[in-house]
């Protein structure tokens, strides 16, 4: 399944090279075709994509990290794989929510050049953005179910452990006494 979608993504990515107008349609909320690829597909098909301009959509995660020449790094996650995006400060301005335990990060669309081994960045596999990052869906908090029973059981066990510890200490004294005799 992944192979077919990525091939579709590939052809479209190639087509988008020639037709700049495709960009606009690719970024509309409900495109007729999957006009973008996920970070996992970028890594899986990197040999074919190397040097090409693609549109990658995924979740911005973690941190914005300052890079060289007024650029930053934003890592974008999709299908379990994250890819670093090298983007200028102003092009990254729209991205605010970064994914972590408490929230899903901004769902961003990145248009940029794929590098299998980026010469500027020591051979890293990365994407150099050529257009401003666009936020398709803003970041949202994640609700976590809190398993209170675990805490209650844990607390009960800790109380039991307290008694065990007292018993252990008493016994140990006995053992030491026995050894002395």
């Amino acid at each position: 399944m992944r192979a077919t979608t990525s091939r579709a993504g590939l052809t479209l990515a190639a087509a988008s090279l020639t037709a700049a107008g495709l960009l606009a349609s690719a970024l509309t909320p409900a495109p007729a075709l999957a006009a973008w690829i996920s970070p996992a597909e970028v890594v899986a098909d990197v040999n074919e994509l190397d040097g090409q301009t693609v549109t990658m959509v995924g979740e911005a995660i973690g941190d914005t990290m300052r890079a060289d020449q007024d650029h930053v790094w934003i890592n974008v996650l999709g299908d379990g794989t994250a890819v670093g995006v090298y983007v200028s400060n102003e092009d990254a301005a729209e991205v605010e929510g970064l994914g972590d335990y408490d929230r899903v990060g901004d769902r961003v669309s990145v248009r940029g050049v794929v590098n299998l081994a980026c010469e500027q960045h020591g051979g890293d596999l990365d994407i150099h953005a050529v257009a401003p990052l666009e936020v398709l869906e803003p970041s949202a908090p994640i609700e976590h179910y809190v398993p209170v029973w675990e805490g209650i059981l844990g607390a009960a066990l800790i109380v039991v452990a307290g008694f065990l510890f007292r018993a252990y200490r008493a016994r140990r004294l006995g053992w030491v006494e026995a050894r002395r005799r």
Partner: peptide
């Protein structure tokens, strides 16, 4: 909660 349980299990 996970760690409360973890501590309890490990200690007991």
């Amino acid at each position: 909660m996970d760690y409360l349980l973890g501590i309890g299990v490990a200690l007991v």
